[in-house]
Nucleic acid binder design. Structure first.
Length: 500
RNA sequence: GAUUCUGUAGCUCAGCAGGUAGAGCACAUCCCUUUUAAGGAUGGGGUCUUGGGUUCGAAUCCCAACAGGAUCACCA
C-alpha cells in the first residue's frame, strides 16, 4: 500500500499524539448532553440556554487565526461552529494543547468532543465557545472537501462510483442523503404498523431454499457443505408464506430480501426488498382496498399529504384509485378490443401496433407486450390493472367468470409496477398442471420458468383456504415516496463490480 | 448485452495544433485572539487507469483491457 503525502502526515501526527500521552482512539464513553440541531433551533429564542453543553462530532473545516480558531463540527443531525481560544483550552502556562495538539495534530475528519457555552459571534453565527476539547477518534484518511455558500456547492463529491463504493464518505460529506434512508426506514415502519394493526403476523422464512419458487426469474445458486446439496437464494417467499396459511394463520407477512440473477439498471438491483402478505378467506378485490388504504396512509405518514411530487408529476394516492381491466386499458390506449381475439389475431394486432414479437411468445406474453408498450408508461396516477391472462400467472386462481384470465391485479404508479397481487390458486390439481406447463416452458429454453415444488403441492393437497396474496417492491415504493430516480440511491450499498 | 461519454494531485477540474504536467480547495511552514465556500504569505505533492502501437518525442493520436456514468435492451 502506498500512502499519499497527506496520509503519511496523519500517521506521523498519530505517532506524536501517542508520544504526548494522548490516546487517539480512547475507549471511554463521551457524555453528550445536546446535539447541533437542538442548539440551532432553540438558542435564538432563549440565549440563557446551553451555557454548559457537551457535544461530539467530526471536524469538517478549520479556520485558524493565531491564538483563536473556528471549527465546523458535524454530528448526526447537523453542523455547528466552534470557537476555540488558546487561553481557554490551555488555562495554564503550557499551551501544548492548543499550539501542538489542536493546530498541528488534529485534522479535518477527526472526531472530537467539546464542552463549552453557546454564544453568537459578531458575524451573527451561533457558536460554541469551547472550554475543553478531547480527541475521540483520529482520522487517517483525508475526506473530500465540500464547501457551500448560499446554496452554491463547491467541489461537490458527486462521482457515483465513489459515492456507492464508499457510502460512508458520501454520508459524511453529503449528509442530506441520510434523509432518503431515514424516510425509507419510516416507510417500512409505517407499513409494518399498518399490517400489525390489522392483526397479521410478521414471520421469517428461508432465504436458502432447495427449490426456488414464487416468481419467474433466474436464481443465485450456492452449496451447503454438510448437507452436500445445492441451495438457491430465494427469488420470492410466496410459496413458504402460503404454507403458513395452510398451517392455519389468518394473515402473515414478511419484509424479504429477494435475489434475482438478472441485469442491473436504475430500477434493478440483484438483491432487493419485497413485502409479501397473505390473508386467508380474502380475494384480490379485497386486497385492492387494502393496498389503497395502506399506500395512502404511508404517503400521509411520510409527506403529510396523499400528494407526492415524483419527477415532473404530482401523484395523488388518495383513495379510491382508478381501476381498469387489462383488456379495457389496452382498448383505451390502442383503440383495439382484444378481448375475444385468438393468438393469430393478437399477433396481427401486435404487428399493426408495431410491437416487436418473437415466435416463442404465446397469447399471454403478446398481451403483456402490448400493455407494456402502450399502456404502462402512460399510467402515472395510481391505477389498478386487473384480470391478467392465465399464461403469465401460474400461481393465481382462475377468474370466477372470465375464461382464460386469472384474478390478479397490479398497481401501476408513475408508469411502473408498484405491487402485484392475486387470489391465490389453492386447487392442488390445477396448480400441478400449471407447474407442468412451466416445466414445458423450461424444456423449451425459458430460463425463468418455474420449477415444480412437490412439497408445496403436498401442502395445497392438505387444503389451503381461499387466500389473497400481495407483493410490494419496497425499493421502488421508496423511490416514489422520496422522489428518487435511481434504485442505487435508496439502497445504502448497491451492487457493484468488485473493486480492483 | 448495444450505443455513447468519462478516467490527470487527497477532492473538484483545466490542459488534447503531439514538444519540461496546471488551477482552486486540501496539505506543510511562517504571520494573525470573533472568522465563515477561500484570513495573509511561501512551499511540497502526479508511473496523467493499465497494456500495446504510431512518432525523434504521447496525458494528448490509434488499438485493446479495466472501471464507471447516461440511454436502450433484458428484467411479472
Amino acid at each position: 500500500m502506498t500512502l499519499s503525502e497527506q496520509e503519511i502526515i496523519r500517521r506521523e501526527s498519530l505517532q506524536q499524539l501517542y508520544e504526548l500521552g494522548i490516546n487517539p482512539f480512547p475507549s471511554n464513553t463521551y457524555e453528550v448532553n445536546v446535539n447541533t440541531s437542538e442548539i440551532l433551533e432553540k438558542f435564538p429564542t432563549d440565549e440563557t440556554l446551553f451555557q454548559d453543553v457537551s457535544i461530539a462530532g467530526r471536524i469538517m473545516s478549520r479556520r485558524i487565526m493565531g491564538a483563536a480558531s473556528f471549527v465546523e463540527l458535524q454530528d448526526s443531525v447537523g453542523r455547528i461552529q466552534l470557537y476555540i481560544k488558546r487561553d481557554d483550552i490551555c488555562p495554564g502556562e503550557d499551551k501544548t494543547c492548543y499550539n501542538t495538539v489542536f493546530k498541528k495534530l488534529l485534522d479535518i475528519g477527526d472526531i472530537i468532543g467539546v464542552r463549552g457555552f453557546v454564544f453568537i459571534t459578531k458575524m451573527g453565527e451561533i457558536t460554541i465557545h469551547v472550554k475543553e476539547l478531547k480527541l475521540l477518534a483520529k482520522s487517517l484518511h483525508p475526506l473530500p472537501i465540500v464547501k457551500e455558500k448560499e446554496d452554491q456547492i463547491y467541489d461537490a463529491f458527486t462521482d457515483p462510483e465513489q459515492r456507492y463504493r464508499q457510502r460512508y464518505v458520501d454520508l459524511i460529506v453529503n449528509p442530506w442523503i441520510k434523509d432518503t434512508f431515514i424516510r425509507r426506514a419510516q416507510l417500512i415502519g409505517s407499513m409494518r404498523n399498518f399490517l400489525n394493526s390489522k392483526g397479521y403476523l410478521e414471520v421469517e422464512t428461508p432465504i436458502l431454499q432447495p427449490l426456488y419458487g414464487g416468481a419467474s426469474a433466474r436464481p443465485f445458486k450456492t452449496y451447503h457443505n454438510t448437507l452436500d446439496t445445492t441451495l438457491y437464494l430465494r427469488i420470492a417467499n410466496e410459496l413458504y408464506l402460503k404454507r403458513l396459511i395452510v398451517g392455519g394463520f389468518d394473515g402473515v407477512f414478511e419484509f424479504a430480501k429477494d435475489f434475482r440473477n438478472e441485469g442491473m439498471s436504475r430500477f434493478h438491483n440483484p438483491e432487493f426488498t419485497q413485502m409479501e402478505l397473505y390473508v386467508a378467506f380474502k380475494d384480490y378485490n379485497w386486497m385492492m382496498e387494502l393496498v389503497e388504504e395502506m399506500i395512502e396512509k404511508i404517503a400521509i405518514d411520510l409527506n403529510g399529504s396523499a400528494k407526492v411530487q415524483v419527477g415532473e408529476y404530482i401523484i395523488d394516492f388518495k383513495r379510491p384509485w382508478k381501476r381498469y381491466t387489462m383488456y379495457e386499458v389496452i382498448q383505451h390506449f390502442t383503440g383495439v378490443d382484444i378481448s375475444n381475439m385468438d393468438e393469430e389475431e393478437l399477433r396481427n394486432t401486435a404487428q399493426t401496433l408495431k410491437v416487436p414479437l418473437t415466435p416463442a411468445m404465446a397469447k399471454g406474453k403478446i398481451i403483456d407486450e402490448i400493455f407494456g408498450e402502450y399502456c404502462e408508461p402512460n399510467l402515472i396516477q395510481p391505477t389498478f390493472i386487473t384480470d391478467y391472462p392465465i399464461e403469465m400467472s401460474p400461481l393465481a386462481k382462475k377468474h370466477v367468470s372470465k375464461p382464460g384470465l386469472v384474478e390478479r391485479f397490479e398497481a401501476i404508479v408513475n408508469g411502473k409496477e408498484l405491487c402485484n397481487s392475486f387470489s391465490e390458486l389453492n386447487d392442488p390439481i390445477d396448480q400441478r398442471e400449471r407447474f407442468e406447463a412451466q416445466l414445458e416452458l423450461g424444456r423449451r429454453g425459458d430460463e425463468e420458468s418455474m420449477v415444480l415444488d412437490e412439497d408445496f403441492l403436498r401442502a395445497l393437497e392438505y387444503g389451503m383456504p381461499p387466500t389473497a396474496g400481495l407483493g410490494v417492491g419496497i425499493d421502488r415504493l421508496t423511490m416514489i415516496m422520496t422522489n428518487t430516480a435511481s434504485i442505487q440511491d435508496v439502497i445504502f450499498f448497491p451492487q457493484m463490480r468488485p473493486e480492483k
